[in-house]
Design a protein around this nucleic acid. Structure first.
Lengths: 248, 248
DNA sequence: CAGTGGTCTAGACCACGAT
DNA sequence: TCGTGGTCTAGACCACTGT
């Protein structure tokens, strides 16, 4: 309880948070609603709401209007890099994760554009050079989990299937290889923040869910960047894993 | 404006968000305060607050009581894995980042404990086996940016400097190597979520700042796990980078 | 249509920073 | 001391879900 003897929204949030952490309120189960909190703690509606709002922003609960408020579940899928090491140590993972069946890709668009500055810089392009931009959205079990935008220097890929919706067997990397630009080295940079409104909509994100931004740059063996892929991941849907060694 | 012709908190938030995104309100600059929003939009204080609250939760602004509300800045440091490839392609990064000078470590504690289940599993330990636990906090320019907890099987490291506060030259990995348990392969698993209250306090996180959780497992060349290091990063302070190749 | 969450007004008081 | 953000009450109305 607060110092002045009055119950504040933090006190209510603390109690509920503790009951969720302890497992008393299990994932998927119903959380006491506004009305119950109002009568039990003797506070105004706005105060009860504030408490629930706090937990929503912490990603612990989700509200469904007309139905109630529920403890959130975390059932991520695993994304492993390098991909060939996917099964290297799956038995010793810290977090449980599905393999992610029933995947689907949609909304593939292909455009030719002038890239934003950071992309042009990462691709080491001259001023005004243009790029092929491929945009898509990944869904697992019908739920969108990732947005991806790939950039290729137009000078490198013009006329190839990379400029088509359907890139053919092996995808864009197979086409790059045929063109003499096989990607062999990769740099992935990650950061995390709260989503913009457009991202919240496109990924159907609940309140309190950050996004993971991954910028992958692919290099040829002679160190030329040939692709930048910017991904936006629903953080409630992914565990990202990397394998590497200490030796050269 | 909302359909009913009344200005809602979303409308106010949208306008401010747009002015921030466009750069009109630059990082560090002052955002219109509650009073200004109340008079300009003709709403109640609670509505103006709700709009600002929204942007706080999106990590776009920070409020300083008594002073005002300000557009947030993002000045991350870079964490690269494998570490030996730190300078491999720094010139072609997507996001600007500092190298992170003036680092400091504090709060090192060393204990012997029975590990939580996921740790015991990741270290492939028998039931009831105990571990050495090293906890610490990293600061950059006086601001805490990372919490870290490392676990070592007690059976492997008992009697070595790994059980001391000061691990000596080369740190724990040098000691593990001397003991015949040199770590050569690493698995890093990442996820992201909103911080618990204890994490908000320990990392001095502003509202709307997620944390990055990294669980690193270190293996010897004969594939025995010898360390699990659980890290909690301030997402506003870090860009995490990984280098890898497609070949074996 | 009853119950639940979502938005808003109007007004009060408190805590802290800058001046 | 004044202005700013932070918390709270009391009451109203709306929107959606489930029965």
């Amino acid at each position: 309880m607060a110092e002045n003897g009055r119950v504040g929204y933090r006190d209510i949030a603390d109690e509920l948070r503790q009951r969720i952490d302890s497992g008393e309120l299990a994932p998927g189960s119903r959380v006491p609603g506004e009305n119950e909190l109002i009568t039990r703690f003797g506070v105004a509606q706005a105060t009860a709401r504030r408490a629930l709002d706090e937990l929503k922003n912490e990603g612990l609960i989700v509200a469904r209007r007309g139905a109630g408020t529920f403890v959130r579940e975390f059932k991520p899928i695993r994304r492993t890099s390098p991909d060939r090491l996917r099964n290297w140590s799956s038995g010793l993972s810290i977090w449980k994760a599905d393999v992610g069946t029933r995947q689907r890709t949609e909304n593939i668009t292909v455009d030719v554009e002038t890239p934003p500055d950071p992309i042009a810089k990462a691709l080491d392009l001259d001023d005004g050079a243009r790029v092929v931009v491929r945009r898509r959205r990944y869904l697992v079990d019908g739920k969108p989990v990732q947005l991806a935008t790939s950039f290729y220097p137009l000078a490198l890929v013009a006329g190839s299937a990379i400029t088509e919706i359907n890139t053919g067997a092996g995808g864009t990397y197979a086409r790059l290889t045929e063109l003499g630009h096989e990607p062999t080295r990769f740099l992935e940079e990650l950061r995390t923040r709260m989503p913009r409104e457009s991202e919240r909509d496109a990924l159907e994100l609940a309140q309190g869910t950050p996004v993971i931004l991954i910028a992958r740059t692919a290099f040829t063996s002679d160190n030329r960047p040939v692709e930048v892929n910017e991904m936006t991941l629903d953080s409630a849907a992914y565990v990202v894993a990397y394998n590497f060694t200490s030796s050269g």
